[in-house]
Design a binder for these strands. Structure first.
Lengths: 239, 239
DNA sequence: CGTAACATTGAGGTCGGTCAACCCGCGTGG
DNA sequence: CCACGCGGGTTGACCGACCTCAATGTTACG
């Protein structure tokens, strides 16, 4: 496995700010504020390019950074003592990870695909936040959102069947995915990643997908491209 | 803790601040700051007493409040469409719940035992936070901590056996519990609550506890009082 | 003492894990 | 061109942990 050194690092690139498309009209104050958080992070962070399947964060690393995915896909994970891996979450372009508190509870992170990541030092951010209370407020909002998301996942993992989990996953990815062009999703991750995310085995994921295809709910082309044939069936199966 | 001799509900009681014991020496800045958050919440919140097994928050309720448990035990939960209940977390004296973002993702909350709860309106808190950036910072810290905690739970739920879950639960409660006097825990919640928390059935929880007792790791007296006979065995079984 | 809520115990079924074989696409190298 | 290996994915047979259903036991409390 590759290490950090493989990554190309481009420190401090204010010009990137200008490249960002400015929305014609902010939908609300909240949006405008989030926009300002984005700009702030772009200013004080540094952009790094990682190839696929490299570790960005180690499990016991001091967590004084947060990360924003600019392109590609990243996952956070933890390796259990018996060697099994649990994926904490997938992060697509625009998502932020590393928000969880760094009291030894840090998850590791690695790239699923090639990825462009904005790395922000928390210390710098909080120095700014001292002067700008709104900034901390946005971080709080993001963290609370992530918390709600993880709690949803707790529900999914603890009391749902394999089929419900897989269906839930597909619907979630289709909702989030920039790569979900209307009626299909391009999954960037392998079956193993999905299994580790859902707390299942790779075989069960495979079998469940086959079952979904068999009952006409989806169609699988080129392994990682899922087409939705009957969304209503999926929603029903998800319970 | 706050000692309030008010009736059912007491709004705005600045005198209460003076009653709070001041730590002889703040262990760190962080501790001192958390203290200040506590005081702020005590100032703007109102204390409410709930009997056992009543709902504090409904599932779809607008989430403009956060709650601090002053005494007793509370749990958050969600009821699935098939009637099964998933418990999101248990909150003991000193814990805060309701931090998750209110975008329709709210969990319901109900008391396990009689409970004294401090209710704080988010709007009031954030109004204060506008002037005091540190305040938001503490909320952020708390939320990040909760996030880390829930992520630990995701690991526990997705890839551990029934025994590992139960053992993990017992150790967690013994670490947190004020009612855990040294070598035993008094569980405030029923077997059903534990089962719903761990994503198991009540029967499995019961059988697992029996197995733990049988192998000499614990001893069960009066149903909800668990004595630890061999902590090392438990830690080993937890993996 | 009697009742009801809570908890334990038992028998049997099922979902998903485990292990193993196989398939498929792809790059490499002769 | 084929042979080969390799990583990722699928398929099948079997088994065990946990769920389900049902009966029984225990505790709390009037």
């Amino acid at each position: 496995m590759l290490t950090h050194s493989a990554a190309l690092k481009s420190a401090f690139h204010p010009a990137a700010l200008l490249e960002q498309p400015v929305p014609s009209k902010p939908a609300s104050d909240q949006h405008a504020e989030e926009e300002s958080l984005d700009r702030c992070m772009a200013l004080i962070g540094s952009v790094t390019y990682y190839p696929r399947r490299v570790q960005i964060v180690h499990e016991d690393e001091a967590a004084d950074r947060i990360y924003k995915v600019l392109s590609g896909t990243v996952c956070t994970y933890k390796v259990l003592s018996d060697g099994r891996r649990q994926i904490g979450g997938f992060y697509l372009a625009g998502d932020i990870f590393g928000l969880e508190c760094g009291e030894g509870h840090t998850l590791a992170a690695e790239t699923i695909t090639n990825a462009k990541v904005l790395v922000i030092r928390k210390s710098v951010l909080s120095a700014l936040a001292g002067r700008n209370a709104a900034l901390t407020g946005h971080l709080l909002l993001l963290t609370a959102r992530e918390l709600a998301h993880v709690q949803e996942r707790v529900l999914l993992l603890s009391s749902k069947s394999a089929q419900e989990r897989v269906v839930g996953f597909l619907l979630e990815m289709s909702k989030r995915g920039s790569s979900s062009s209307g009626n299909s999703v391009d999954l960037p991750m392998s079956r193993q990643d999905i299994a580790d995310y859902l707390g299942l085995t790779i075989e069960t994921v495979s079998r469940t997908l086959w079952a979904l295809e068999n009952c006409g709910a989806i169609e699988i082309s080129r392994r990682r491209r899922i087409q939705f044939r009957s969304r209503s069936t999926l929603v029903r199966l998800q319970q």
